[in-house]
Amino acid sequence: MTKAYRNSNTDPEFGVDSRYPSKTAYQSEATALMEARLERMINMSKDQVIRAKLMQLKFKMEEFIKQPVYEQHYFFSEFLQSYVDIIYSKRTVFAKDIGTTPVKLSQIINNHRPPQDDFILKLMIHSERIYKDVCEFQKEIWYQVYFHEKLCNTMSTQQEWKPKLEQEVYVSEPIVKYGENKK
């Protein structure tokens, strides 16, 4: 950026050069900033911590459904566990709040049973109410996470299920390759 341009420009949003001029400047400013932040963190309320964690969870779910993750991992139950543990000190209370049993909840969180539609629908209603005063939240994201995980797991385990199933699938009325029917 030229000095003349900078001097003639009055809009503070035209650009910010925020790079540290040296490693020494970075180190001393980083230390001062950290000290000040630690002071402020002491006054952070439990409510603020919960809000920040809920927002983090939302972003992590949004990130997950954006791209294929070809690894066998139980994201739905991991996100569910985070959600419950952020808000409740006891999971049994959450189970009661959504009308399920602590055993069923525990089985879903520990991947011993898949969540039924009824469970996900109640989870959607619960999270809609919780997020209402936190940030914008698409309640259907729970379904998106669940099905995205299923899809990713299915595709990542193709080598296991495809060879056997291929023997059982036939195409008795194939579509002629494009162009070949003209011959």
Partner: peptide
């Protein structure tokens, strides 16, 4: 920052004094 660090998150800037 929130996605990475939740309640500890911080975004910093080092603008010229005038802005």
């Amino acid at each position: 920052a929130i996605s990475e660090y939740a309640e500890l998150a911080c975004v910093s800037l080092r603008p010229k004094t005038e802005i």
